[in-house]
């Protein structure tokens, strides 16, 4: 299974290097590090999925000595590992540029990881059930809803989100963090089991 994760890395090694370079550059303007980390991790995970989505690649992977459980597991574990990789890169970049006093907070790292896990939890079962093209449609739908929301209902959604992020980061209660993390982990595992169920019934 480790080799499946390695495969995702090999397939996108140029992109990984590019991302790392960009992330290091971003460290110079440290501002939106949580969003940057989140977007980069997520886009990497999604493109790994879209590369494996074709029927013929599924035929290859399932003809090799892997079980379907492992194929699904590689995506879930890979998602965490790649996110960690990007976070570490950001962390190192931040350290190099800003020295000791500019360190990314552990909270920020947790927030990136949490966001990636939540999004992945919804996206992966969707992708195993449907094809990428439906995801694009769903994305368009989400964007439409988002635009409608900010133009008609909550005009200052952006500010609300930013405020919310700051609020979360400002939270001191460690229990609350722990509790949130626990829920996310349960969500992630639930999504993982669901994906296995979907993938095991798939025909190519």
């Amino acid at each position: 299974m480790y080799s499946l994760i390695r495969k995702d890395f090999l397939l996108q090694k140029h992109i990984v290097l590019l991302y790392i370079a960009i992330l290091l550059l971003f460290s110079l303007f440290v501002e939106a590090s949580v969003y940057v980390g989140f977007i980069f991790s997520l886009s990497f995970i999604m493109s790994a999925c879209s590369l494996d989505e074709k029927d013929n690649i599924n035929i290859l992977l399932n003809s090799l000595p892997y079980t379907r459980k492992e194929i699904v597991a590689s995506k879930y574990i890979g998602a965490l590992l790649f996110t960690l990789l990007f976070v570490i890169v950001m962390y190192v970049g931040d350290f190099l540029v800003n020295g000791n006093n500019g360190l990314l907070l552990l909270k920020e790292v947790m927030l990136i990881l949490g966001l990636v896990m939540i999004t992945t939890s919804f996206l992966l079962p969707f992708l195993y059930k449907f094809k990428m093209q439906y995801l694009h449609m769903a994305m368009v739908g989400v964007v439409v809803i988002y635009l409608l929301t900010i133009s008609f209902f909550i005009k200052n959604l952006h500010d609300v989100i930013r405020a919310l992020t700051l609020k979360i980061l400002a939270l001191q209660e460690i229990q609350l963090y722990f509790f949130a993390m626990l829920i996310i982990v349960i969500l992630y595992i639930g999504s993982w089991l669901l994906s296995i169920r979907i993938y095991e019934r798939k025909v190519f």
Partner: peptide, 9 residues
């Protein structure tokens, strides 16, 4: 295994 269709990236 050898398939009729292309199974490579």
């Amino acid at each position: 295994f050898v398939y009729d269709e292309n199974i490579f990236y």
